[in-house]
Design a protein around this nucleic acid. Sequence first.
RNA 1: GACCCCAUCGUCUAGAGGCCUAGGACACCUGGUUUUCAUCCAGGCAACAGGGGUUCGACUCCCCUUGGGGUCACCA
Length: 468
Amino acid sequence: MKDVITRFAPSPTGYLHIGGVRTALISWAYAKKHNGQFILRIEDTDKERSTPQAIEAIKDGIQWLELINDGPIYFQTQRIARYSDVIKKMLEDGHAYYCYSSKEELDQTREDNMKLGKKPKYDGKWRPENNKTLPDIPEDIKPVIRFKNPIQGSVTWVDLVKGKITINNEELDDFIIARSDGSPTYNFCVVIDDWDMKITHVIRGDDHINNTPRQINLLAALEAPIPHYAHLSMILGEDGQKLSKRHGAVSVMTYKDHGYLPEALKNYLARLGWSHGDDEIFDMSELCEWFDFKNVTSSSAQFSKEKLDWINNYYIKNKDTDELSALIKKILLKNKFDNLDDKKITDAINLFKERANNLNELAQNLAFFFKPPKASKELIKKYFNQNTLELLSLFFKDLEGHGLSEATIDEYIKSFVKLNEIKFPSIAMPLRIIIVGTDQSPSVGSIISILSIDESLRRYNEFLKQYD
RNA sequence: GACCCCAUCGUCUAGAGGCCUAGGACACCUGGUUUUCAUCCAGGCAACAGGGGUUCGACUCCCCUUGGGGUCACCA
């Protein structure tokens, strides 16, 4: 196979969401698999809706996920001269023509066709044909330029995920390639760019299937090579509906903010609509090695936060401790925690990382190490009585001098339980309430050993003051 | 409305005509480990949308129905 070149071509009109990210991920992976190139192209020909913020959002997302593009980032607005040249040439060659129909006129035709149960399309009023007399050119209308689409025959391509697709040229109309202000439109720019950038595989959402025959016809008129097409099915929201602002179509960066690891999100997204046997957990080098369009599902997939959480938890548990510590420290700092101790953070993370679905949760779980907790009245009521206080007093009196390792503290607790003929929870639970602030935590010994005996004592004394 | 796409457990999926008594994962349930919780381990529940063909044989191929989705802009 010749060098594979893929592209991700978002329009900067909103945030980069999950669906776009999956398209980018697969385009990236396919290029990497074949030692090819992955191009990032910003389709900003719509001046009304494109914003600099959206461009930044795309860059941020791509960077966070490390789907690094090869070469420069292309902007369509910087290629206007090239588009004009091609349009001029097409006009000369008879592949394109001026159309003076007004918007009102077009709307009317569309409406009429709809009523007749026909496809609403341009009526070809200004399309030049042999032996056809064109209407007089109205003076008050600035024309658009249309592509002269073939009238007969059909367009067929073998889609890499959907299989063979055929669409009759009858279904297509002469679409506009340049607006009345002279600016080129999407369908036209895409074609020229894919051609100029030598894109071999156009990978995009299946909402573009209907644009594909138009683009193929245009390519053919230009005598340009036709790339392979792969139309990925959409990702549906958790409710099975199309991703929309109301249904989870949030920026990828909010996944970062919510404490998801980029490697987890990528793993999840890659697995959505694609599979490699029973493999659920795989890294990006495995994805690149394994990826094949024949394993891409052609039906749409519903997003599942639960499964993402499970994968995120897996990646958190298995992440390098230093890297994880750095991320957690950042979150703690952001939440205004001071007197952070690196060693303490690392030890605490190792103790808590298996129980967190995301980084924020993990940071939250660690909070009590750096700020004394405040247990709820209900919990105190549940675990404390006069007897408890006496036990605690005995326990703390003797706590010092038993060494600070998890093992020695555990041993002390065990012997304490035995000596006083009580059940383990009778002392462990109150200790949790005082030190952690909840009744659910890893072993008390491990926590005291990380927190220090002094601090544990301090919390005990503080608790006594409040208890009365 | 027209055209296009899609259809296996609740969800993500395996399945290239006999390997299917339909496999795995998430979720859920039960038990074990943890004298808490989480993790982990063992087990369980749960699906081929419906109807016609083709074939000795269909989850797999064809057709229809139904259901879902997409597109029909001087948006991308």
